[in-house]
């Protein structure tokens, strides 16, 4: 019973993190495409900013995945 609750909690933790990062990455990608379509000469600069922002947006779900994997494997 306890193990199955831990598995469910880990799944919820991963899923909620994935929802947030999915929305964030979608918005980032959309804005990036808008920016490149408006000013194609700024593409290299926008690309750098996109990589940094993507890494930042991805940080929170990766932390959630790490904690949930800890719950699943180590608890």
């Amino acid at each position: 019973m306890e193990q199955s609750l831990i598995l469910i909690a880990g799944g919820i933790l991963m899923g909620l993190g994935a929802i947030g990062s999915g929305v964030g990455i979608g918005m980032l990608g959309g804005k990036y495409l808008e920016g490149v379509a408006r000013q194609p000469e700024l593409q290299p600069m926008l690309m750098t900013q996109l990589f940094i922002s993507l890494a930042l947006v991805d940080a929170v779900p990766i932390i959630a995945v790490g904690i949930s994997l800890y719950m699943i494997f180590a608890l």
Binding site: G29, Y32, L33, Q43, M47, L50, L54, V65, L69, F73
Partner: peptide, 28 residues
């Protein structure tokens, strides 16, 4: 000047995420 920037970025993020998960599992 490559125009496949978004595809590259998303692929890089996927690789990063899968590598992180693999390393976490290996550690635990």
């Amino acid at each position: 000047g490559d125009d496949s920037g978004l595809k590259q970025a998303v692929t890089a993020e996927l690789v990063r995420l899968s590598l992180s998960v693999t390393l976490f599992i290996a550690t635990f």
